[in-house]
């Protein structure tokens, strides 16, 4: 029953979030400089002859785009089409944006997923080591390396790695389909660079857990270090970080914009950047809505996962923050 209540609460939250974002995006579209009609018809400053025809043409395009009604009506129409997964057509290619995004989504999903695995495993491994050696040289060394990596611009590292692994010693495949051979280098770059903050968080949380009474009790009971740290401290210490994992995964979808561009991956991030240069507004809108959808889905998933992982949430509805 409580899980159901939680589900409904989370769903309502997700809907409200979606609504707010849709309003924000719609406002931005309306505020954007330039008239979409001009983009479609092209610059008509040079048009010679009958301006009446051009005005008529403009009116027709405006009507086709649904721009001849009030803003509220436009918003409602827009939402209606969104509900049917109709994002319109790209100004550039004329193809439907849903299918264009769908073609590019796998590369981004692969990249974000793989980078997430790299990020979490590095953060977990070094976070545990650092927490067990608090204020000793291993801890300081890991921290220093973390500070160095956080300061490294992803585009610099990406370009250097590309030069080394694709040109000097060609072990990385620059062309080809979305596959391990194509993805390992960008995923590694993205994962390594984003791991230090997560590592720091894991370290701090674990150190806090070590001083808890249940650990002292476990130690006095004679439990081994592996079991104490690996099961008891890790389980409790990671719980508050779960939501950070969700936010991070969402961040990887967007952080992949630079990496996708450097490694020329056919993902949605590079699509968005190309769309910006082409002033392809429907495509940009589609990209943002897709990211919004992914973010909301992730939040929903993380929120609900607490109910399955943490018995306190399942039985009492208590929400860990």
């Amino acid at each position: 029953m409580i899980v159901l209540k939680l589900l409904i609460y989370r769903l309502i939250r997700a809907m409200v979030l979606l609504w707010i974002v849709s309003l924000m995006i719609f406002t931005l579209i309306r505020l954007a400089p330039g008239d979409p009609v001009d983009y479609i018809l092209g610059a008509n400053d040079l048009a010679i002859g009958d301006t009446g025809t051009i005005e008529l043409q403009k009116k027709q395009v405006r009507k086709n785009l649904g721009l001849d009604v009030t803003a509220t009506q436009q918003y409602l129409n827009w939402i209606k089409r969104l509900a049917l997964f109709d994002l319109g057509n790209s100004y550039r290619s004329g193809k439907s944006i849903v299918s264009e995004l769908a073609d590019r989504l796998p590369a981004t999903l692969y990249l974000a997923g793989a980078a997430f695995l790299v990020q979490v495993s590095i953060a977990l491994g070094f976070g545990i080591i650092a927490s067990l050696n608090e204020d000793r040289w291993a801890d300081h060394l890991i921290r220093l390396i973390g500070v160095l990596f956080v300061a490294l611009p992803s585009f610099l590292l990406g370009l250097i790695l590309l030069e080394i692994f694709a040109i000097r010693y060609p072990v990385y495949d620059m062309i080809g389909q979305v596959s391990f051979k194509r993805m390992w280098l960008p995923a590694l770059t993205l994962g390594v660079l984003t791991s230090p903050p997560v590592m720091r968080l894991i370290r701090v949380n674990l150190i806090r857990e070590y001083s808890r009474q249940y650990i002292v009790f476990g130690r006095s009971k004679g439990l081994g270090k592996k079991r104490l740290v690996g099961i008891h401290a890790l389980g409790n210490g990671l719980l508050p970080i779960l939501s950070v994992f969700g936010v991070n995964l969402a961040g990887l979808f967007s952080g992949s914009v630079i990496i996708e561009s450097i490694f020329v991956l056919p993902g949605i991030g590079r699509y968005a950047v190309e769309s910006i240069f082409a002033r392809d507004y429907p495509a940009i809108t589609g990209y943002v809505l897709l990211i919004t959808f992914i973010v909301i889905l992730l939040n929903l998933f993380v929120g609900l996962s607490y109910a399955f992982i943490d018995p306190r949430v399942r039985n009492t509805g208590y929400i860990t923050k």
Partner: peptide
């Protein structure tokens, strides 16, 4: 929201 995406949106529009 990933802040990069939001910056991209504004740059885009």
């Amino acid at each position: 929201f990933p802040s990069t995406v939001l910056a991209i949106v504004i740059a885009g529009f």
